[in-house]
């Protein structure tokens, strides 16, 4: 705080112009970054006529929620939405529990197998069996066309494990487990009763990292799930956005309407699929940043 004030006081002539120039450049960059988001929302809520006449550049023209009605009437999108919520909740729970438990044990300096296990995990960050052997393994474990194929093969991320371990090492003092042990506590008791209550920030970091990953995942679903009732939202979106599937337009008689809605529907489904993340994002942004910062600490 004090340093900030010093900086301001020492401001010299000529700085003003530099400040203004930089602010203008940065605002322009921010607007450019935001443009696709604004355009998508505008396209999804404009009048179909304006969409067909290609009149929309930035702001919506007219107002119509017809495309959203179509999205909401569609059963397939809700099934895939439900699936994604399942994958996100179940997957994130497994991820967070395993990562916290493992990271805590590996953060304890006196744990005899600590370095060996860290090494064992670090190796997998630089070397892996590859796509095909993993594919064969998951199939031979009977996970083909099973929901578990979406949550078990990625149960722990080495990167997140290291972040959590760094958190424990830097914020839980070594003396804490030592003195608890003198009082007769077991390592399990220390973890659940002392360490976990002190770990809300890292739990939040892990939840947001893993949950966004699950929400946006599509590739494993494409590999392992042929049954479309198990498909996550992203796979459904791929069908709509990139494979131009006309499924959603069934039952629409008017050819003109069909064309307009075919365009608008894509934008409406992007909004429906992405809105949860965009809405939660401002509130959890600090945890993402914290996670990256923890990742940057090298022992």
């Amino acid at each position: 705080m004090i340093e900030m004030n010093v900086r301001k006081e020492l401001k010299r002539p000529g700085s003003g112009l530099w400040d203004i120039a930089i602010e203008i450049i940065m605002i322009a960059i921010a607007l450019l970054t935001l443009y696709p988001f604004i355009y998508i929302i505008s396209m999804s809520i404009s009048e179909p006529d304006a969409v067909l006449a290609q009149e929309i550049w930035l702001l919506p023209k007219g107002f119509s929620l017809g495309s959203y009605d179509l999205v909401f009437e569609n059963k397939e999108i809700w099934i895939s939405y439900g699936n994604t919520i399942w994958y996100t909740i179940v997957g994130t729970s497994i991820n967070v529990v395993l990562t916290l438990a493992g990271a805590y044990a590996l953060s304890r300096k006196e744990f005899f197998a600590r370095n060996a296990i860290m090494m064992y995990i670090a190796v997998t960050m630089f070397f892996n069996g590859g796509l095909i052997p993993t594919f064969i393994l998951v199939n031979s474990l009977g996970m083909y066309n099973s929901r578990w194929a979406m949550v078990i093969p990625g149960a722990v991320s080495a990167w997140n494990l290291i972040i959590a371990r760094t958190y424990f090492q830097t914020s839980i003092p070594d003396s804490l487990p030592e003195s608890a042990k003198l009082d007769g506590a077991t390592d399990l008791g220390i973890f659940f009763r002392i360490v976990l209550p002190l770990s809300t920030p890292i739990i939040a970091v892990l939840i947001v990292f893993y949950a966004v990953g699950h929400w946006n995942a599509w590739f494993n679903a494409m590999l392992y799930l042929s049954d479309s009732t198990l498909h996550p939202l992203q796979l459904f979106l791929r069908k709509i956005l990139l494979m131009n599937s006309p499924d959603l337009l069934q039952g629409m008689e008017d050819a003109f309407e069909r064309v307009a809605y075919a365009i608008q529907l894509k934008y409406a489904s992007i909004v429906v699929a992405t809105l949860p993340i965009i809405c939660i994002y401002p509130f959890v942004q600090k945890y993402f940043v914290k996670g990256v910062m923890l990742g940057a600490i090298k022992e």
Partner: peptide
């Protein structure tokens, strides 16, 4: 500036 990072690849390429 962080926002685009949270958009899924499917949505990004679809856009």
């Amino acid at each position: 500036s962080y926002l685009p990072h949270f958009i899924s690849l499917v949505v990004m390429v679809g856009m």
